[in-house]
Amino acid sequence: MYAYTSIRCEINLVNLENGWKLLCDKVFGPEHDHPPELEEVGKEIVEKCQGLPLAILVTAGRLSKIPRMLEDWKDVCRALSKSIASHHPRVLRAITSCLSASNHDFFYL
């Protein structure tokens, strides 16, 4: 039988500028060659991820698979409003649990 140990895990959040760079790296590559009309909605998307690097990376993965069209990015932004933004505490708990589990913080009873 396993029991979970109660260990605090600190998550480093990113600011808007670094979040935007992270999103651009994953969606557009190192040159950050993106259509200028996507920057405003892209930064709004990053804000909705509330500084969570994993949320930014998951969202960037989604954005990299859809057309680089303003309306498509706005759809992603609206979807984030309904998911990550409204469930922020749950998302943090899930990420913290995953981080702790990945560090093998379990013991046998």
Rank of each mutant, 00 (worst) to 15 (best):
N12C: 03
A3T: 09
L99R: 07
L63R: 00
P67F: 02
A79H: 14
G19W: 06
L80A: 06
S102Q: 10
I7C: 06
L92A: 13
V41R: 02
K74S: 14
I7H: 08
L109N: 11
R93Y: 05
K74M: 05
P30K: 11
F28T: 01
S6L: 06
G29H: 04
R78M: 11
R93P: 03
R90N: 12
K26F: 05
N103Y: 03
L63H: 01
L22W: 07
L99Q: 10
I56K: 05
R62M: 05
F28L: 00
I45K: 08
L92T: 07
G61A: 04
L23N: 10
F107D: 07
S81F: 02
F107C: 06
S86N: 10
N103P: 00
E10L: 13
P35G: 02
F106L: 12
K43M: 15
L57W: 02
L52R: 03
H32T: 07
L38F: 01
A79E: 15
C77R: 04
W20F: 08
L23E: 06
D25T: 15
S81V: 02
A85H: 13
A85W: 05
L23Y: 03
V58G: 00
K21F: 13
I11A: 14
A94N: 04
R8P: 05
I66D: 00
E39I: 14
K74E: 15
S102N: 13
H104P: 00
E71A: 14
E37G: 01
L52V: 13
D105N: 13
D33I: 07
M1Q: 06
W73E: 01
W73T: 01
G61W: 10
L70K: 02
K26A: 12
A85K: 07
D105F: 13
R8I: 15
E47S: 14
Q50P: 02
E40M: 04
V41G: 14
E10M: 03
C9M: 12
S100R: 12
P36S: 07
C9R: 10
V41K: 04
L54Y: 07
C49A: 11
L63P: 00
P89N: 04
I84F: 05
G19K: 12
L99M: 15
H34M: 13
I95E: 12
R68F: 01
Y2M: 09
T5M: 13
I95H: 10
W73V: 06
R8Y: 11
D25C: 03
C9N: 07
H32K: 12
Q50W: 05
A94T: 13
H87P: 01
S97I: 08
V27N: 01
K48T: 05
I95Y: 13
I95A: 10
F107S: 11
S64K: 11
S6G: 10
A85L: 15
I7G: 03
L80D: 04
G19A: 08
H87D: 09
H34N: 10
P36E: 13
P53W: 15
E39N: 08
P89F: 14
I45Y: 07
P36A: 13
K21W: 06
R68N: 00
S86T: 13
S102A: 09
K74G: 11
D25R: 09
H32M: 01
L80R: 06
E17H: 10
E71Y: 06
Y4T: 12
G42W: 01
N12L: 14
